[in-house]
Nucleic acid binder design. Structure first.
Length: 520
RNA sequence: GAUCCGGUAGCUCAGCUGGUAGAGCAUUUGACUUUUAAUCAAAGGGUCCCGGGUUCGAACCCCGGCCGGAUCACCA
């Protein structure tokens, strides 16, 4: 155990811990905290204590409380215990803990040896102190587990000022377990993220859509324009790709006869990282037969409004400097309308060369290789997207940018597609799905051309997907929502790393500790 | 990938024009059984991110690298 001779550890107390064992107090198995909130829910009981309204549990019928958690500091007989629900004060009176005199003596010794981070279990009863704080009077204390490393504890005073906060982003992301213990707001953000998933699941399940799972390892990557991660299967001796999207598989299931399917999909894209991009991220994709993009727009509004309510209890969310309101209905612009709204220029009737000239005039960086669709997309991205704070639907995109979307029923050159943009970022992308196998083949072939010209993110042709379409796919509305981006908004997070438990990091230099460990 | 900022004790940070390393909390020991970020006293604790250079002398200046953050680019 050479490692523990390092100064980093509380060497003095290690030996004492052997003492704990000798005392027979280290009863990790024996102590059962599962009954910790019985017979009355602790929150209810605490509010009852505070309001002097305990019903059947009056002062003479105090329920015994069993609870376990981390010991988080001590001042005199008062200490703090942190468990999954928060922090509660303990009252540990010398000589009063334990059933027998011997037990009391032992417990006092153990208390002396407790450190921040240690796990203890205890039996006690609740009371309110003179200063009005709900506190557990400890009747019995069990030592459960030792923290060898010091937790970087954060202190808060009455005014809410924070001292010595654990803030270094590198340490927080690399040691998320520590971040979670000492930063309650971090824990809250991740609880919200899970509520978000549950909200969407409940919403879609109530509509009888089927949650499904499709392959992550794919022989061809499709459904989006992105560079993939590549791997190799030894037995089959073949190249496989980690999916960049699951779109083409879900559509196969629509062909197979399901009316509505969805999947929370971990996708992987081998591209740059930023505060909006992690190499692995999550989308939910949803496909519903016999519907179109107009219908899907209404569903998105309804669903995201519900998510906001389920997660935060309100449709209004403060995100950075902006108060974002998800209350229906959201603003809707066609892409042409949006450009006209933000630049004053109507490009809907313009030719490619006129649009090129317009882009130049607006100082949008463009070059001669860009087609009409790309030019429009650039103008929108440059002049409109950054203006959209409140959730807004942008509809009817140029066909060149959307090889899987159905051509617009009345507007040539456009597809039936929309994105919802919120806080300057796309949060979803949806279309009336292209279900014409002949058109789809042509679009794939156009993508192949782009690939030949060096676009390494152009889509590849998926012959089996085309075969599926050739068997007939009903008219279908499809949707993808970036769950991480949505979680960032719902939790007012500035970086995608704040909504991922373990964001991708370069490996840290473990030289020192690895060497220490090797000498064991 | 480019630019800017940062990396000093377990954590949060100071460290001036270059002169042999500091604080608070945490830790250890002792006292105190009290309230509530921080009781008192004492002690221990450092590869100043790494490598090279300049200098009598480098945490500090110069060069190269590593890691992180922000912005931009890329990425629908």
């Amino acid at each position: 155990m050479e490692l523990f001779k390092s100064k980093k550890f509380r060497t003095g107390s290690i030996k004492e811990e052997e003492g704990f064992i000798a005392f027979g107090i280290k009863d990790t198995v024996e102590f059962d905290a599962s009954a910790n909130r019985a017979p009355m829910d602790l929150e209810t009981y605490i509010s009852g204590l505070r309001t002097n309204n305990l019903g059947d549990y009056g002062p003479d019928k105090l329920p015994e409380l069993r609870i376990a958690g981390r010991f988080m500091g001590q001042r005199g007989p008062f200490a703090k215990l942190q468990d999954a629900d928060g922090i509660i004060q303990l009252y540990m009176q010398k000589g009063k803990m334990g059933a027998t005199e011997a037990a009391q003596e032992l417990t006092d010794k153990v208390v002396k040896l407790l450190h921040i981070g240690d796990y203890i279990g205890l039996v006690g009863e609740l009371f309110v102190t003179q200063t009005g704080e709900v506190t557990i009077k400890v009747k019995e204390l069990h030592f459960l587990s030792k923290a060898l490393r010091n937790l970087p504890i954060v202190k808060r005073d009455k005014e809410g000022n924070v001292y010595d906060a654990f803030t270094d982003p590198e340490l927080r992301y690399r040691q998320r377990y520590v971040d979670l213990v000492v930063n309650p707001h971090v824990r809250e953000a991740f609880v919200k993220r899970t509520k978000m998933y549950n909200s969407i699941r409940n919403f879609l399940n109530e509509k009888d859509y089927l949650e499904v799972e499709t392959p992550i390892l794919q022989p061809l990557y499709g459904g989006a324009a992105a560079r993939p991660f590549k791997t190799h299967h030894n037995t089959l001796d073949m190249t496989l790709y980690l999916r960049i999207a699951n779109e083409l598989y879900l559509k196969r299931l629509i062909v197979g006869g399901f009316d509505g399917v969805y999947e929370f999909s971990k996708d992987f894209r081998n591209e740059g990282m930023s505060r909006f991009h992690n190499p692995e991220f999550t989308q939910i994709e949803l496909y519903v037969a016999y519907k179109d993009y107009e219908w899907m727009m209404n569903l998105v509004e309804e669903m995201v409004e519900k998510v906001a309510l389920d997660v935060n209890g309100t449709t209004k969310i403060q995100v950075g400097d902006n108060l974002i309101d998800f209350k229906r209905p959201w603003k809707r612009y066609t892409m042409y309308e949006a450009i006209e709204h933000f630049t004053g220029i109507d490009i809907s009737e313009m030719s490619e060369s006129e649009i090129f000239a317009t882009a130049k005039k607006l100082h949008v960086p463009v070059d001669e290789t860009m087609g009409k669709g790309k030019l429009i997309d650039e103008i929108f991205g440059e002049k409109c997207e950054g203006e959209l704070i409140q959730p807004t639907f942008i509809t009817d995109y140029p066909v060149e940018m959307s090889p899987l979307a159905k051509k617009h029923r009345t507007k040539p050159g456009l597809v039936e597609r929309f994105e919802a943009i919120c806080n300057k970022k796309e949060i979803c992308n949806a279309f009336s799905e292209l279900n014409d196998p002949i058109d789809q083949r042509e679009r794939f072939e156009a993508q192949l051309e782009l690939g030949k010209r060096g676009d390494d993110e152009a889509m590849v042709l998926d012959e089996d997907f085309l075969r599926a379409l050739e068997y007939g796919m009903p008219p279908t509305a499809g949707l993808g929502i970036g769950m991480d981006r949505l979680a960032m908004i719902m939790t007012n997070s500035n970086s995608i790393q704040d909504v991922l438990f373990f964001p991708q990091m370069k490996p840290e230099d473990q030289g020192e500790e690895a060497q220490e460990a090797e000498t064991e």
